[in-house]
Every structure is written in C-alpha cells, then in structure tokens.
Amino acid sequence: KPRTPFTTSQLLALERKFRQKQYLSIAERAEFSSSLNLTETQVKIWFQNRRAKAKR
C-alpha cells in the first residue's frame, strides 16, 4: 500500500497533538482523524511511528 503523503498542515497538527499527548484514546483518534481528513488507521500508525522516533 502506498505511503500517505501528509500535507504540511496535517503534519503540524499531528506534531502539536503529539506534544500535548503521546497516546490518543479511540474517541480522540476518531475525532482528530476526521478533523484532518485522514483515516483513523493513518493517525494510529503516525502516532506509533512518532513514538518509536521519540524513543531513538
């Protein structure tokens, strides 16, 4: 499956949310993903990858 090209504004929103909170609840993820026009899976995986990056 092809890589999702996130827009700059989506990335800024994702990073801002990640700084507030590294783990989103299912409800938060649902609301946040629809506000960004992304799927919940895209947001879930982005947060997983971002947490992995933060550990490195």
Rank of each mutant, 00 (worst) to 15 (best):
N37P: 03
K17T: 09
L36F: 09
Q20G: 07
L38N: 02
P2F: 05
L14G: 00
E15A: 04
T41A: 11
R56I: 14
F6D: 06
L11F: 02
F32D: 01
F47P: 02
E40Q: 03
L36H: 13
R51L: 14
L38A: 07
R29A: 14
Q22M: 10
W46M: 01
L11D: 12
S34T: 06
W46H: 00
K17W: 03
T41M: 09
R51E: 08
L11R: 00
Q42G: 03
Q42T: 09
S25H: 08
R29Q: 14
Q42D: 14
L36A: 09
F6C: 02
L12R: 08
Q48M: 07
R3A: 14
R3H: 11
L24T: 00
K55H: 10
A54C: 09
L12T: 13
K21W: 04
S9P: 10
L24S: 01
K1L: 08
R56M: 14
L24E: 05
A54L: 12
K55G: 14
R51C: 02
F6H: 04
K1I: 15
T4S: 10
F6K: 01
S25V: 03
L11Y: 04
R3L: 13
A52G: 10
S33W: 00
R3T: 12
P5W: 03
A27M: 13
E15C: 03
S9T: 10
I45H: 12
K1S: 04
S9Q: 11
E40R: 03
R29G: 12
K44S: 12
P2D: 14
K21R: 10
S34C: 08
R56D: 10
T7V: 06
E15P: 05
E31F: 04
A27F: 05
V43W: 01
E28I: 01
R19F: 06
Q20V: 06
S9C: 09
K21S: 14
Q10R: 00
R19W: 11
S25Y: 03
L11T: 07
Q22K: 06
R56S: 12
L11I: 09
I26N: 13
E40C: 03
E40T: 04
N49G: 07
T4C: 07
W46P: 04
A13V: 06
K44I: 10
K55L: 10
I26G: 14
L24G: 02
L38C: 07
Q22E: 13
T4Y: 11
L36P: 00
R29L: 15
A52M: 08
R50K: 14
F18T: 03
Q20K: 09
T7Q: 06
W46A: 03
